[in-house]
Structures are given as structure tokens and as C-alpha cells.
Design a protein around this nucleic acid. Structure first.
Lengths: 108, 108
DNA sequence: TTGTTATATTGCAATATTGCGATATTGTTT
DNA sequence: AAACAATATCGCAATATTGCAATATAACAA
């Protein structure tokens, strides 16, 4: 099918998975790391950072934007992408909530 | 293509993405949460927790195992899956290292 | 041995993802 | 206006993912 079932899960589980999924690609990890590093970024800079073509980078940026990790504003004829700070803190909470749980004793 | 390029990224980026990717599905999120909750788990319990068939659950378990999030030991005729504690702490470090970075001033 | 239980694997169909070249689109410059 | 720059979208091909039914496998029970 290729289509993920959404019935039977909590909204929190679905959203957590959606965020993790978007982070599940090295190019998007690299983009996020780069943005966190330099605080602001014009999209084309990424052509020198990533081993991908311009259209492909554009798509990865769109995916990151879809779940709110980054936001972009128009800056003349170029785009100004950066981390969406409030959302980033939200994601930290969400993922942190999962990661923070203790695995307990080794049982098997 | 459908095939993710791996050249041009650091090993850390590739591994981080691989872990995030596996967490990028609500069923696998639910499995991990459930395992963290009850500390141990026999695979078939999941049939009552997830809205999925037995073969599909088995595949999700296999994916979680592939990146080391869970481990399974044979317990008679059933499986005993649980969180791989040392690996879990490793993953917490990896993902935490990314999430912990401050997004800085809102720039756009 | 035969049946039962628990899990894994196979085979398939449907959809999703990834990547790029070509082409829009939009703003800027000359 | 015409050329240029930066980014987005389209169209395509190749591969990946998801899900289930059917089947295999393995341990246990009667």
C-alpha cells in the first residue's frame, strides 16, 4: 500500500512520527544543523554544502517547512530560510519527552 | 530514484537520519513508547495495542531492531522484545545533541 | 504424531520518496 | 524591454515503504 494508517494512534504519536520522518534524511539533518550553526541562510548557500541539485534541495526545504521546522521569508529575489524558533522548542519537548524516558533494567 | 545519496555527508549525519527515519512512523513510535512503559514485552501483545496485522507488526519490529533501538531474545516459542538500553542512551545523546542547539534570534 | 501457538518470511499491489533535467516564476539589473 | 539571478514546480524514472493474505518455521502440548 505504501500508505501509513493513521487510525488507532494518538495525535501526539502521529505528529511525533511526522517530525521524525522529516528528520530521517541526511540532507535534511545537514540543512537543520547548518541553519542552527549560522542562524540565517539563503537557500542557494546550500548548493555548496549539499551534494544535491537545486531542485532537490528546494524539495527538502519544502518538507522541513511543512512540519514547521524551518520558515522562509522572501528577501527580494531570494529566500531567507531559518529555524522556526518556537516550533523548534516544541519539537525539543516532543522528542525529548520520548528520549527522556528511562529504558529500565536490561531484561533480555 | 528513491535512493538516498550517502556521499557528501558525515557518518554521524547518516546515522542520525537513519534513527530518525525508523522513528518516523506512528506504529514504531507506539511500540517504543509501549516498551518503555512496561519494560518488557512479548511481541504478540502488540496485536492488541496496534491497529495492524501480525506480519506488519513483525516488520516494524525488524526495522526497530535494525537500528538497534530494540533487541529480541527467544523465549521458548515466543519472542521477548525490549529496549536496548545502552543503545537507547546513545540515541538520546545523538538526537539530544541536535535538539539541544539553541535556534538563536528569530531572524526572518 | 498431530495439532496449536507464536513469530517470521514471501509475494503482491498501492503509494511514497528521491533525484534530476527542463521549465516556470519572480525580482533585479542593465 | 531584455538579460540575469534565485527559487519553485513539473514530469519522469528508479527505488523504498507500507500493508495484508498466505505460507513457512519453530517450540510446545495433547
Amino acid at each position: 500500500m505504501g500508505l501509513t494508517k493513521t487510525e488507532g494512534y494518538t495525535q501526539a504519536q502521529i505528529e511525533l512520527a511526522a517530525v521524525a520522518k522529516v528528520l530521517g534524511h541526511p540532507a535534511r539533518i545537514a540543512i537543520v544543523q547548518h541553519l542552527l550553526e549560522i542562524d540565517a541562510c539563503i537557500g542557494n548557500d546550500l548548493m555548496e554544502v549539499l551534494p544535491l541539485s537545486q531542485p532537490t534541495i528546494s524539495r527538502h526545504l519544502a518538507e522541513l517547512k511543512k512540519v514547521g521546522i524551518i520558515q522562509g521569508t522572501i528577501e527580494g529575489s531570494s529566500m531567507n530560510y531559518c529555524i522556526n524558533a518556537p516550533r523548534w522548542l516544541e519539537i525539543r519537548q516532543m522528542l525529548g519527552g520520548l528520549l527522556g524516558k528511562e529504558p529500565g533494567e536490561q531484561c533480555c
